[in-house]
Structure formats: structure tokens, C-alpha cells
Design a protein around this nucleic acid. Sequence first.
DNA 1: TCAAGACTATACCGATCTGTATAGTGGCTC
DNA 2: GAGCCACTATACAGATCGGTATAGTCTTGA
Lengths: 195, 195
Amino acid sequence: MGTTRITMTPGARRALAAASRLFYEQGIHAVGVDLIAAEAGVTKKTLYDRFGSKEQIVVEYLADRDERWRAFVTQWLERTEPGSADRVVAVFDASKAWMAESSPKGCSMVNAHAEISDPAHPAYAIITGQKQWMLALFADLVRDIAPTRADELARTLMLIHEGALVAHGLRIFPDPIGHARDRAGELLKDAGDRP
Amino acid sequence: MGTTRITMTPGARRALAAASRLFYEQGIHAVGVDLIAAEAGVTKKTLYDRFGSKEQIVVEYLADRDERWRAFVTQWLERTEPGSADRVVAVFDASKAWMAESSPKGCSMVNAHAEISDPAHPAYAIITGQKQWMLALFADLVRDIAPTRADELARTLMLIHEGALVAHGLRIFPDPIGHARDRAGELLKDAGDRP
DNA sequence: TCAAGACTATACCGATCTGTATAGTGGCTC
DNA sequence: GAGCCACTATACAGATCGGTATAGTCTTGA
């Protein structure tokens, strides 16, 4: 991990929880540190003692969300049969559950990327890192089913998955993640038929 | 069209061009009206005489981009055979050309949506309007090929297309729109085989 | 009991934010 | 050549931005 993390004292934990909610709902630039402090029941002094800068709060926000998402998916995968197409479908099931819980505005990484122009920003690596992790995960899961076409299928799954998250956030049509899940299932069934 | 548009004087045109570039590259909240005025070679007075508010500049930015995108796609479609699967593929070709030109950060509508929380914001209707237009376009084009499955296929195409734009913006893998184009072609070839 | 550390409250810094006011200049048309 | 309109320049209002300083309170563990 290339990003520096901070020690999470009780106050820092509350601040991060408030910042996470506010950043996701209203956007990063739209939320000031005064608002974060007020919502968390914490003074700005405490915020800057713990995080040092607003940028670091943003980094912690994304790194924490990334960490929780990876753990969430891993947990869903553990309930499925290794080496089966069900495992790919389970990723979409996990996404649907995750989004239904508290992510009506789509992927936080994609949304954060919209507000960060500088690739040198420490948050940039977290954002692209998660997407690379997802692509590698799809490739690993597909390799057990269709080894020769693993990379190509993984990229297609990636497109469908990202598209579903966007469609969910923008409410383009009902249940886009469920739709994506079904298409992913068909895609792998067809791929398995012709070896 | 539910959004009010303004009269585009030369100064307003320059201001909108500058705002478009800045909003897209740095995000809406990160760009102030002073910067827009300076970059456009226009005073703030002129900005407020023409647009009235920053919000209205944002609305013009999105409405103008939406308008130009629709014209762009329509132009590409006119070069293809009506009723053929090539027309769907042409949408992806248009997207690839559009993004290559001046959109390295993905879809401006999706990015703007990340910064706008209030559905009552006048920009909201423009954002969702474009996505609905795209979905209807896909449905119309597919109806000529596979009428019974038009809506389902249109939604799948929508997911692949949106995913490709995100993947392009985040540089998840090389040429995602080209990849999406090929998958869309296959999808319709298979759909046409079984009527 | 005492020291350390996490926290609180308050007040402030300079900079920047959106938005407005005043006064004056340039070019176009009738 | 008079009037109109787009534009320029400057200065400022009130609020909020990220970030810091001082001083005091609370809990925890040795």
C-alpha cells in the first residue's frame, strides 16, 4: 500500500464516518472541514490534529471504502463454489447488496475521480488501484472457466459491471445491477459451452 | 426542453467555452467564476450580465454539450445503412471519436452528477435526459434487428456503453470503447441469428 | 496520584468564494 | 451623429474556504 494511513482515535473515527457520508452525498469539493467537524461533533482542531489536511481526510475516505468493499466482496465469494461461474455472478450480487445498502449515487471511486484532476493526487492511486483489483479479480475468476479467453471476458465483465454502477446511480432503468448479473451469467454459460 | 437558455453574445460564447473546458477538466465546484472570466478574457460583470448565476453557467455547459453530442451521434448514424446492426456499432464509433477528441476524463454528465446532490437542480434533468435519450436511441436501433428483445438488448448495450466511458476515463485497460464496440457487434449478430 | 494524550471551546489568519455596484469604452445601426 | 448594446476596469460586500493558535477539560493507565 503506497498511501499513508493515520491512527484512528475515537474522534477520528467519528470524523471519518461523517466525512464519508458527506463526501459521498454532496461531493468532495462541496463539503468543507467546518461542516465535517460539526456533523461529527468534533472541533476543527481535532480534525487537523488527526488528519493534518483535508486531502488526507479524502484519502482516508477512499482507502477505507476500498478496504471495506474488498472485504465485502471476498466475504460473498467465500460462500460460493470455487471454480464455478457462480463466483462471477456472486460479484454482481455483492455489488447489488452493497449499492442497495448505502450507495444510491453510484461508485464512490468514479465520483471522486470526477473531482480530482491531478494524477499525482494521493487519492488517484486508490481509485485506479481498486479498478485494477476488480479487473484482476474478474480475470482470476474467469480463468477457471474459460482460460484461453480470460482476459477478454474479464474486460467485458468489467464494462458491464461499471456500466451497471453508473446506471444505478443515474437511475437510467430499474435494477441495472440485476440486469448486469443476468448478462454476466449468460456470457459465461456461452463461454463454457465452447471450450 | 425544460431548461431556459440565454442569448449567446460573443463574450458569452467565449465564457462558455472556457467554462466548459475548466468544468470538465477540474470539476464544477473546483472552478470559480473569477477563473472562468480570466480564462475567457471577460469580466465578471459580463458573466453575470449574460448568465445571471454560476448555476446557469453550469446548465449552459451541460445543455450545450448534450446538444453537440446528440448532433455528433446523429451525424455518424446518417453515414450508415438504416436497419442494419452497423448503426448500433456506429454509436460506439461515434463515442470513440468523441472521447478521443477532447474527453479523456469520461462522460461529462456522469462526472457532473457526482457533484450535484439535489435532484431539483436544473442540471439534473439535462443529465438524466441525455441518458434516457441514449437508452431510447439504442432501443430504436435494435428494434429493426430484434424487435422482440429490443428493450432488453438496449439496456445491455447501455451498460456496455456506459462502462466503456468510465473505463476510458479511468484508463482501466487500453481502448475500452473499441472493446465495447466489438462486444456490441457480437451481441447483435447472435441476436439476429435466432429470430 | 500523576502524567500523557485525546478531546473541547473560541478566536483568529489570509485567501477565496459568489455576487454586485459604479463608471467608462468600443463598435454597430438607424 | 445619436443611441444602443456589448464590453472593460476596478472596487467591494458578505460569506466561507483551509488551516492555526491558545487555553482548558476529560479519561485512561501506571
